[in-house]
């Protein structure tokens, strides 16, 4: 990198706070060490270059350090692994293979299964190995697709010709066009990512989302659409056509209501027609008896 970057201006102007002394008392931190950051971290024995943290490992490591004393909610992209036969993929998740499991934790059933096989068998020759985990997973997770895809999909897992273009090599040639299954998996992944991000946004901004939904409901409600349309929609789904029928018989003397350009059809405003039979006869002949 040093060769790519100009040596000029290697020091920015001094920060305003560096001119002033610290105003408060001693800080509860160990005094800073001298040397470069990478040397210091290596000297402290905490360095772990290029570590990729898998979903499973992450959950295991955070159990004891959760200061809240309550379980955190599942992330939207971490659906339960309903095909959990191979769910115990932790044991296989070593080395670079963990990346695959982690990358596609969102697909749960696919990635979850795949991680176990792929990391052991194919994963090692991928530096990043994200997609290999996915495809490899779909393939080896025979529970889902059956063995049929096993052969061809395995090839992708090995970083073959259809492997993802290496993101660490910006000058490399683009990879060959993906096959149908690869594209399908990519679309699936996109869908998962999409909903994950929407859920995260709502997470960060719960009140705003609540307001938005409330406003939307009010809007519908005010225009009187919501319930009527909902009912009509449901009825239509059931195959019942709820037609706007003449609910009222024609008014007396052909009276037209103020909002009734179509003659005798009176829905609301027009006066109700009297019963066709006189009130006297309401109880029939028995009343007289």
């Amino acid at each position: 990198m040093a060769s790519n970057s100009p040596a000029s201006g290697s020091n920015p102007p001094i920060k305003p706070w560096e001119r002033a002394g610290s105003s408060s008392g001693p800080a509860p931190f160990k005094p800073p060490s001298a040397g470069s950051t990478s040397d210091i971290v290596e000297a402290s024995g905490t360095a772990k270059p290029g570590e990729i943290v898998s979903t499973a490992e992450r959950n295991a490591s955070t159990v004891n350090t959760n200061a809240l004393g309550r379980p955190m909610p599942t992330r939207p992209w971490e659906q339960q692994q309903s095909y959990g036969g191979y769910g115990s993929s932790l044991n296989y998740n070593t080395g670079y293979g963990t990346g695959m499991y982690g990358s596609y934790g969102g697909l749960g059933s696919y990635g979850g299964l795949g991680g176990s096989y792929d990391s052991g068998l194919y994963g090692n020759n991928m530096y990043r190995g994200g997609y290999s985990g996915l495809y490899g997973g779909g393939m080896n997770g025979g529970g889902m697709y059956g063995g049929g895809f096993g052969g061809p999909m395995g090839g992708y897992g090995m970083g073959g010709p259809y492997g993802e273009h290496d993101p660490n090599n910006p000058f490399g040639a683009p990879s060959s066009p993906p096959s149908f299954w690869v594209s399908l998996m990519r679309v699936m992944q996109g869908v998962v990512t999409f909903f994950g991000r929407v859920a995260m946004l709502i997470d960060q901004n719960t009140q705003a989302f609540h307001m938005f939904m409330t406003a939307l409901l009010q809007l519908f409600d005010r225009s009187g659409l919501l319930y009527g349309e909902l009912a009509r929609f449901v009825l239509r789904l059931l195959g019942i056509r709820a037609k706007r029928k003449k609910v009222q018989p024609p008014g007396p003397h052909g009276l037209q209501g103020p909002h009734n350009p179509h003659g005798n059809q009176n829905y609301i405003e027009g006066p109700k027609a009297p019963p066709s039979v006189g009130w006297d006869n309401l109880w029939g002949d028995n009343a007289n008896n």
């Binding site: 990478s38 490992e57 955070t62 350090t65």
Partner: peptide
Amino acid sequence: VDRPASVRTFKEHA
């Protein structure tokens, strides 16, 4: 800036 991989990872947040 002189390494192609991360020096270390801090994983404690839940």
